[in-house]
């Protein structure tokens, strides 16, 4: 994707604002922003599927939650685990799950794909929900954030809120850059082609199944990375993290922000975060009802999301395609 100039300026400003936030914001909001940035990574990874490959995955939370659970499993009760061990385990676990689920799913299209991804994700949900060794429906705690050390020398202390904040911010920026690079590369051209017209892409000589599967695995792995961060940030993983409401929420975040833009889903994460906060203040018992009405309103009136508004105002259509 080629960035128009106002967009690039906006992105740099936004990252600058996020970097400056801990200096001015209080600790409560700092925690909130951490969670929203993690949601941003999670939503970007789904955007690769929905917005760029055209795969409507309704089970994306499976990889997010699975990875978080893996961190909980490899973290001992009384000490920290090394990040050099924990992170690869989490990412490989998510990637492997995405490979297996993707292998079944990409052979189908349309409604089938939606239902199959949802069904497999629910399978994980029920597994963790019923597994009492992993805390069942209550979930499982992660008492220590992983240690980041080389040869006994500590590089980062993730338990320091400031350090962790910047760790997540850098993760967000790096995730964005990785996806941007992939989308510019030959692989990105093919998946955009699949999104626009899969039959024709196949007729031009591409085994589209392979490309869809690889896209699914990349997205699943990145969702796993977000899940790893989430487990760190929250200190607890529960089945709800891989339930279908989580998948529905992240899909909503992608649409609200504007699919097919990468930065849109990050905007969406922040918009959704503040909106949920607002709804909860408005009607704490039944705020989900307000959210439901809002979701329907977005589908009917703002299908291209916030990024769609943005490009309408700057009147610069993305020429990345």
């Amino acid at each position: 994707m080629t960035h128009s100039r106002p967009l690039l300026a906006f992105l740099i400003l936004a990252v600058g604002a996020l970097a400056a936030f801990p200096i001015i914001g209080d600790e409560f909001y700092q925690e909130l922003v951490i969670r929203l940035m993690i949601m941003g990574i999670f939503a970007m990874s789904l955007d690769l599927l929905i917005g760029f490959t055209g795969l409507i995955s309704f089970g994306h939370a499976a990889f997010f939650g699975l990875s978080g659970y893996l961190l909980a499993i490899v973290t001992p009760e009384s000490e920290a685990v090394s990040i050099w061990f924990a992170l690869p385990v989490c990412l490989l676990g998510a990637a492997l799950a995405a490979l297996v689920i993707g292998w079944f799913s990409v052979r189908t299209t349309g409604i089938y794909f939606i239902m199959i991804t949802l069904a497999f994700a629910q399978m994980f949900y029920y597994y963790f929900n019923e597994n009492q060794d992993l805390g069942g429906s209550d979930g499982i705690f992660i008492f220590y954030k992983p240690s980041v050390a080389i040869g006994g020398f500590q590089i980062l202390d993730l338990n320091n809120p400031h350090t962790f904040y910047y760790f997540v911010l850098v993760s967000l920026v790096v995730s964005y850059l990785i996806l941007s690079i992939i989308l510019k590369a030959p692989f990105g051209q093919v998946i955009r082609g699949i999104h626009a017209n899969e039959a024709r892409t196949r007729a031009l000589g591409f085994n589209t199944q392979h490309y869809k599967l690889v896209s699914f695995v990349i997205a699943g792995t990145m969702a796993g990375f977000a899940g790893f961060l989430e487990a760190n940030a929250g200190g607890i993983m529960s089945p709800a993290h891989l339930g279908w409401h989580e998948s529905g929420t992240v899909m909503m975040v992608v649409i609200l922000g504007g699919m097919g833009t990468l930065y849109g889903p990050v905007l969406g994460a922040f918009a959704m975060g503040f909106l949920q906060d607002y709804f909860q203040e408005l009607w704490s018992d039944h705020w989900l009802l307000l959210l439901g009405v809002f979701v329907i309103a977005v589908v009917l009136f703002l299908p291209n999301g916030i990024a769609g508004l943005f490009s309408k105002f700057t009147n610069k259509k993305e020429d990345g395609k």
Binding site: M251, I255, L288, I296
Partner: peptide
């Protein structure tokens, strides 16, 4: 509309109906 919007709108309906039930 695309399946994606069907999923989202009917998901919104679920949120509403589930909360109505609770109310």
């Amino acid at each position: 509309r695309d399946h994606l919007y069907q999923v989202l709108l009917t998901y919104g309906l679920i949120l509403i109906l589930n909360e109505m039930q609770k109310i």
